[in-house]
Computed example of a mutant assay.
Amino acid sequence: MDTKAALLVNLGSPDSPSESDVRHYLNEFLMDGNVIDMPWLIRRMIVSLFVLPKRPAKSAKAYASVWTDDGSPLVSNSKKLLNKVRQQTNMPVELAMRYGRPDMESAIVKLASKREIKELLLFPLYPHYAMSTIKTVVEKAEAIISDNKLPISLSVHPVFYDHEGYINALVNSARPWLEKGYDHLVFSYHGVPERHITKDDSTGSHCLKSGDCCQKPSPAHHTCYRHQIYRTSACFVEKAGIPVDKYSIAFQSKLGRDKWLEPSTSSVIKQLAKQGAKKVLVICPAFVSDCLETLEEIGIEAKEDFIKAGGESLELIPCLNDHPDWTKLVSSWLEQPLKT
């Protein structure tokens, strides 16, 4: 009898693209202290006074532009992954979102209610570590287990940003687009404030202290988002055989006025168009499931910006979603998790 269960966790989505549902979702998301890492009162003021009055209407239109018959693309794609993983493993596996539904508490309580389950393997669906992704998921799971006094132990699957299996799956899923021919490939990663990078620096003296900090060996790399996304990109281009002058790394989805990782995806694609690039591909390895940030922000908004700036075509390479290589890999990791 298997005494272990697994929980796949992705970011989340509003229940619908209505303004009220988007407002509810944004409030839950942005009031997380790992997302806006400021004292509660300041965070409450920022969200209530500067975000919620106008942002829900704008975001609702964006969600509506990519909403499907199956609902939220992120939730739908995550469920497809879940269904295929269940077919390839014998252990109980559930899916939850850090924000919105299906919620983490219901999923964890459901798994813990099975008498034979003694251990929960938490699998955050993020290749890279960040306080706004991995850390908040782990803290939420720990709080749920503690608050509900659940008799299960918790283990967390480690990040996999440069694991050979992940890189192979990423390259294989992208290959049909790479083989079409293109002028330039842009790696567009979700941005984070620079202070998140320095906060997560376990040494307190490495991250962002020099221009080549991500290339210098350091224990800080275990929790450095910036280092890890550069490693993913380096491994990808080596595996795919992409010349150094044919790709760029950029960051999207900035929120607020604080200094975030640069350059921005928007500035990079506009500059590429001005330099004469006509066909650009964009891949978003920080996301394993297509969502608002990939389908709308890149697939619609960035495409329009690129064409307006003089380019001809910008194609979004889909995320891993339920690609066979990816579902097989996740299933194998649930059975035999990676070592930290």
Rank of each mutant, 00 (worst) to 15 (best):
180 K>M: 01
182 Y>A: 06
180 K>C: 00
233 S>N: 04
166 Y>S: 09
166 Y>L: 08
236 F>A: 06
221 H>E: 02
174 A>N: 04
217 P>H: 04
176 P>E: 07
177 W>Q: 10
183 D>L: 13
179 E>F: 04
198 T>C: 04
221 H>L: 04
226 R>N: 07
221 H>P: 02
189 Y>E: 06
177 W>C: 05
214 C>K: 10
209 K>G: 09
184 H>G: 06
229 I>C: 05
219 P>W: 06
214 C>H: 13
233 S>G: 06
200 D>V: 06
191 G>H: 12
166 Y>P: 12
225 Y>S: 10
170 L>K: 09
217 P>N: 03
168 N>R: 07
211 G>Y: 00
232 T>W: 02
175 R>A: 07
210 S>R: 11
207 C>G: 08
179 E>I: 04
232 T>D: 05
213 C>M: 12
227 H>V: 02
199 K>M: 13
183 D>W: 13
226 R>K: 12
190 H>P: 09
236 F>I: 06
184 H>E: 11
187 F>G: 01
186 V>H: 03
183 D>R: 13
162 D>T: 10
206 H>V: 14
208 L>N: 13
212 D>G: 07
218 S>I: 11
207 C>A: 15
232 T>G: 03
222 H>G: 00
205 S>V: 10
173 S>M: 05
162 D>R: 13
220 A>T: 09
222 H>R: 11
235 C>S: 14
206 H>D: 11
185 L>W: 03
225 Y>R: 10
186 V>Y: 02
189 Y>V: 06
172 N>H: 14
199 K>A: 14
214 C>Y: 13
174 A>P: 05
164 E>M: 05
176 P>M: 07
205 S>L: 08
194 E>I: 12
233 S>D: 03
194 E>T: 14
171 V>T: 08
225 Y>T: 07
218 S>G: 13
214 C>E: 09
179 E>P: 12
197 I>W: 11
219 P>K: 09
185 L>Y: 06
190 H>Y: 04
168 N>P: 00
223 T>L: 03
206 H>A: 07
168 N>G: 03
163 H>V: 12
196 H>W: 09
222 H>F: 02
213 C>F: 15
193 P>Y: 13
218 S>E: 14
201 D>K: 10
235 C>P: 03
212 D>P: 09
173 S>H: 04
166 Y>A: 10
216 K>N: 02
217 P>V: 04
226 R>W: 05
216 K>I: 14
231 R>W: 01
185 L>V: 05
234 A>S: 07
218 S>L: 11
212 D>L: 08
202 S>H: 06
226 R>E: 06
